[in-house]
Design a protein around this nucleic acid. Structure first.
Lengths: 160, 160
DNA sequence: TCCGCTGACTTGTTTCAAGCAAGTTAATTG
DNA sequence: CAATTAACTTGCTTGAAACAAGTCAGCGGA
């Protein structure tokens, strides 16, 4: 996760990726859409290109006009972006307008993106996930994510 | 999305949430795990509590010791966090160890989290999604980020 | 041909957030 | 009762974001 955040975790990056996904591909289109400072946008795009998330394509006939295109790696951030949108829509709606509606053209229905298990297809719940980290991390293997949620709150400092 | 990033988009926030999910619930546990500065951690936790993502529970018998627990809203960031992890594991492995293994206890298999359509259960592909955004106020949080999010959509990914 | 305009930046300069160090308070253990 | 731990707060330094302005190349028109 830290590695993902290294590339995607900076302030404007997810919004830039969303714009690229939606179809804003030119520097000034993105700048105008987001209201981001040009030096920051330039740095972000450079970094994304450097990390192979975005491709910078010369527009033919011009020496210094470019189009920014998502790579496969860039398109693959979709899952992150839609879960951000879905979370925002579930919890931070306020009075600032209705939630985004996603139309899934393959099934023809308006939907919400959820996280699912790639193997069985069922939605992932925190209490059904156990994770193993690779070497280098000091925490125990097989920690149950929800180990001490409802039934067993560690409300006292005793054990440790 | 801008609204989600307003709460979750700051530098250490996703890592703090991950720690809370894993079971680090005390201030110094998190501080030690992440190596974050204490003033920053205090600010982040305050903000998360303020936004109802985290609950700050007094530990009985102590006047100034606390446990930080995710709320339902906090647990619901799981989808965001696992898609970050999955993306990092797919594209940024490098030489810093093997990818995280997720065991889905309900189906018993090691898996990767993917984004799926809540209606039909199929994995979501960028080209199968269209976005539809309703009218909204432009100034709920007073940010350009939000204002510009609620604009005219372009529904197709850019073409080659 | 000269003028102005657009696109894609770069170069300063200021403002704000993150990082670091040290100090504080309350309770606890030795 | 001195030392230690937990959970901070305060002050200072550094680095990144925001803002403003300037650059440069290639049009498009008068």
């Amino acid at each position: 996760m830290a590695r993902a955040l290294e590339v995607l975790g900076e302030k404007w990056t997810p919004l830039i990726l969303r714009d690229l996904l939606i179809g804003f591909t030119r520097f000034d289109e993105i700048r105008e859409d987001l209201g981001i400072a040009t030096n920051v946008l330039a740095r972000r795009l450079d970094k994304l290109v450097e990390h192979d998330v975005v491709e910078r394509l010369s527009i033919e006939g011009y020496s210094n006009r470019f189009e920014y295109q998502l790579t496969a790696k860039g398109y693959d951030t979709l899952g992150i972006l839609v879960s951000l949108v879905a979370w925002g829509d579930r919890w931070e709606i306020g009075d600032s307008g209705p939630p985004t509606e996603f139309l899934h053209t393959t099934c023809g229905q308006f939907t919400v993106p959820i996280s699912a298990c790639a193997e069985c297809g069922q939605p992932l719940q925190p209490e059904d996930l156990t994770y193993h980290r690779g070497p280098g991390s000091r925490s125990a293997l097989g920690t149950k994510l929800l180990a001490n949620y409802l039934g067993n709150p560690r409300t006292r400092p005793a054990e440790k």
